[in-house]
């Protein structure tokens, strides 16, 4: 209680002053501020559709959509090309392998056709086989 009493002794609300006539003009100033606030709100609503930005706003939207579509289209094309290139590469590898096999087969055929073996060799082989 003593502490509260000590503090209460210091209470001097009158040390706070206001400018002369402050409360006399407060109501008028407040109403002016309110009118100003209202005018700003109304003005903002009225000019909303007439500003350059507001006219351009729908165009910005359309342009954005078009840009997105273009980007997606390009991305799909790039991906598609990559896939095609991959497929071509695979096809090339397959073709090479096939051609190699084909070449191999041709070599064997060539061997079978005695093109790489001398005729004398064949005769010798046949004579030897017949003798056995």
């Amino acid at each position: 209680m003593t502490v509260t009493n000590d503090i209460n002794k210091l209470r001097r609300p009158e040390v706070f002053k206001v400018p002369e006539g402050y409360f006399d003009t407060l109501c008028q100033r407040t109403m002016q501020n309110i009118d100003k606030g209202e005018v700003e709100v109304i003005a903002a609503k009225d000019t909303k559709h007439s500003t350059l930005l507001s006219i351009r706003k729908p165009l910005y939207g359309l342009v954005s959509v078009a840009a997105c579509v273009a980007v997606i289209f390009m991305a799909v094309n790039i991906l598609d090309n990559n896939v095609s290139n991959d497929n071509t590469a695979i096809a090339k590898v397959d073709k090479t392998e096939i051609m190699s096999e084909s070449n191999a087969r041709t070599y064997e055929e060539d061997v079978l056709d005695y093109s790489l073996v001398g005729v004398q060799d064949v005769y010798d082989y046949l004579e030897e086989d017949y003798a056995n």
């Binding site: 609300p13 706070f16 206001v18 400018p19 409360f23 407060l26 109501c27 407040t30 109403m31 309110i34």
Partner: peptide
């Protein structure tokens, strides 16, 4: 009515704010 409200309550509200905020 609002003007009446401002006249009626502005002093009390001002002092409540002033004692807390300090600067006029």
């Amino acid at each position: 009515a609002f003007e009446e409200l401002v006249n009626q309550y502005s002093r009390k509200l001002y002092w409540q704010i002033r004692h807390l905020v300090v600067d006029h």
